[in-house]
């Protein structure tokens, strides 16, 4: 593993990602916001709790919508990062093997303010296991709601699936155009990767754990 995560995080955190006079933050080929974690946590969790209370039969569908948003985020944000000039300058010189793309993108994720992601296991093309000691989603739940009976890190689930789909269902290394058709092709086709959150701090676990494998 040739990726120096500390160097990647240091480089990314030195980029002045601040809105210009149009109020836009162009970076990694995208327009970013530096958003309020509380806004997303409360909006998502209140919506999910309402469904749990009044329409429990719709809970899986509701969660799927939030996870889909996470997958879109991964597709465009992680994909955009891996195609960006910033990636070319900061990460590409450290890449020695295909697996380093996974380590590299997790290093960049660790500069986004999402809590500390740690790669626990990678079986290329088959399985990814990631742990997050302090995911912002779990922190948002713990701060406002009682212990949960189900995992709550929807963005992270979509993000983990996204890393595998970008690298092993599609091939971001070939610099494909990131468009809705390609998203459908690599995220919603036989063999696409899905993530399961097998432990979550909102359920009393010590950290959140995510296992990503192919759908059958």
């Amino acid at each position: 593993m040739a990726i120096d995560e500390n160097a990647v995080v240091a480089a990314c955190s030195h980029l002045p990602l601040i809105g210009n006079e149009d109020g836009l933050i162009p970076a990694f080929g995208l327009y970013l916001t530096r958003h309020y974690a509380d806004f997303y946590n409360r909006s998502s969790f209140e919506a999910v709790r309402q469904v749990e209370q009044y329409r429990p039969e719709a809970i899986l569908q509701t969660e799927a919508g939030l996870i889909e948003a996470g997958m879109l985020c991964a597709f465009y944000t992680f994909g955009g990062i891996m195609l960006s000039q910033e990636w070319e300058a900061v990460v590409t010189p450290m890449i020695e093997s295909d697996d380093d793309w996974v380590y590299g993108v997790i290093a960049v994720v660790n500069s986004l303010g999402w809590g500390k992601w740690r790669l626990e296991q990678l079986i290329p093309g088959e399985r990814l296991e990631i742990s997050i000691a302090n995911s912002y989603e779990s922190a948002g739940w713990i701060g406002h709601y009682p212990r949960s009976q189900r995992p709550r890190c929807y963005l992270a689930q979509g993000g983990c699936a996204g890393i595998m789909n970008l690298l092993y269902q599609g091939d971001i290394r070939q610099a494909p155009a990131l468009n809705p058709d390609y998203f459908q092709e690599i995220f919603h086709s036989p063999g696409s990767f899905r993530c399961q959150e097998i432990a979550c701090r909102t359920m009393g676990d010590d950290m959140c754990r995510f296992v990503t494998t192919r759908t059958l």
Partner: peptide
């Protein structure tokens, strides 16, 4: 901003009212 310590130094130059130049 010039990240000159990188093996491939990245620059990001903001000119208000006109553009952001990166390379």
């Amino acid at each position: 901003t010039i990240l000159s310590d990188l093996p491939r130094p990245f620059f990001r130059i903001d000119c208000p009212g006109r553009f952001l130049l990166t390379g």
